[in-house]
């Protein structure tokens, strides 16, 4: 019986983990403002972007290494909204992604790309390191070491 409960519980947590919420940039700004001293490492990716998929494990390592620090890794998918159920959620489940995953819910690329960073061409992968004081945007692929160094030297 106890085992059954554990299985049920783990199934519930698993399905909670596999949630992918829709996110607007207003949502994101509010989250950053409420985050006090938290630094957010926000990776813009898509299931169809192979270099993005390749660097996801490095973001997981960064998340695990900073569990006790005020650091949050947010994975923001730029997949089409129509692919949320068919592609994005199954991808997150299959790859057992533990970080918070969102799907960007912004209709106008002309507006949201510039709002995230004026210099961003729109190419992914791209990553934003942001807290209340600092905002650094990188249109590039990261290695594991580059990720932790960028976080450490963020000023």
């Amino acid at each position: 019986m106890r085992i059954l409960i554990i299985i049920c519980l783990s199934l519930i947590t698993y399905s909670v983990n596999a949630q992918v919420k829709l996110l607007t940039l207003d949502n994101l700004d509010k989250r950053i403002a409420k985050g006090k001293d938290t630094t957010y490492v926000i990776n813009f990716w898509a299931t169809w972007c192979s270099p993005c998929v390749a660097e996801l494990p490095d973001f997981e390592k960064l998340r695990l290494a900073n569990l006790k620090k005020p650091v949050k890794v947010l994975l923001v998918s730029l997949d089409f909204k129509s692919k949320l159920q068919k592609e994005v959620i199954p991808f997150v489940q299959k790859n057992n992604i533990k970080a918070e995953v969102f799907l960007l819910n912004e209709p106008d690329q002309q507006k949201y790309i510039e709002r995230i960073d004026k210099k961003w061409s729109g190419a992914i992968p791209a990553t934003l390191f942001v807290n209340k004081k600092v905002r650094r945007f990188y249109e590039k692929e990261f290695t594991e070491i580059e990720l932790s160094n960028t976080l450490l030297t963020l000023k």
Partner: peptide, 10 residues
Amino acid sequence: STKAVGCSIK
């Protein structure tokens, strides 16, 4: 000039 999401150059 416009912007759009695309694949980074390899």
